[in-house]
Design a protein around this nucleic acid. Structure first.
Length: 248
RNA sequence: GGGCAAAGUCGU
């Protein structure tokens, strides 16, 4: 069964969902194997990634019909799929249904939801979810991914200042910002031409032990070029070499 | 300790 699940995983990653579904039938019908939650979750993710949300939801019913209970990963995968497709209402609804199955959302589940809220511009709601997570704590406490993601969303929505507040908040709560966190904020600042604060952040991240990488530099160089400041962009390319990241 | 879920830049 692990063997089949691995094959299904590979097929899904190659976008071969048809074949993956056939593989599921093959293992059930001709091999009398019983797929478990991991098998179904793998397929559900594949279907979500290829935009076949309906089929993914059907598969959840199918697994239940066969006596396999969905778990928190099943729901998180679906919520992520719905969020990515911009169907945040459905994602929220699904979150509400989880309780009926006796399954509690965790940090990753909420983080997937925040992703969706940000992408449709519901930043206020995303911030509400973040507070809720903080209040819940434990398994639902926001982590560095949650914070990085919401900072990214805020910056995209033009709210870099709020992004800074979140950076401070995460520090207060003992969550260390990493390269992704800083890069998201640096990118936001660069896009609005606030290079001085972007540089301050670069220095901060170095001081905190995160080296800027290619993506960090690209983010700021792109901003400089868009602002027509080619000279400083060249300087940054120099700094990029100096820090051991090769421009591409 | 097994196979499954979440975050950053540019590249049409």
């Amino acid at each position: 069964i692990i063997f089949y699940t691995k094959r299904i995983h590979t097929l899904c990653n190659n976008g071969q969902t048809e074949k993956a579904l056939k593989m599921l039938r093959l293992m059930e019908d001709t091999n009398n194997l019983v797929p478990d939650a991991v098998t179904y979750n793998t397929l559900i993710k594949g279907l979500c990634n290829s935009g076949q949300l309906e089929l993914a939801l059907q598969l959840v019913h199918q697994m239940q019909a066969k006596g396999c209970s969905p778990n928190v990963i099943t729901f998180t995968t679906l919520i992520h799929g719905l969020s990515t497709a911009g169907k945040v209402d459905s994602a929220l609804q699904l979150l509400g249904h989880m309780g009926r199955y006796g399954i509690l959302p965790n940090t990753i589940t909420y983080t997937a939801l925040i992703q969706g809220l940000c992408s449709v511009g519901e930043l206020d709601k995303a911030l509400e979810v973040l507070s809720h997570m903080t209040a819940l704590g434990g398994d639902c406490a926001p982590n560095v991914v949650t914070y990085s993601q919401i900072i990214h969303g805020l910056c995209k929505g033009g709210l870099c200042d709020v992004g800074f507040e979140i950076l401070h908040e995460m520090r207060l709560r003992g969550c260390r910002a990493n390269r992704v966190t800083y890069t998201a904020l640096i990118h936001g600042l660069s896009q609005v031409g606030d290079f001085s604060r972007a540089c301050v952040l670069i220095n901060q991240m170095v001081a905190m032990g995160s080296q800027p990488d290619k993506i960090t530099f690209n983010a700021i160089i792109d901003g400089l070029v868009k602002a027509g400041d080619v000279d400083h962009a060249r300087d940054m390319v120099g700094a990029m070499w100096a820090s051991g990241a090769a421009p591409d």
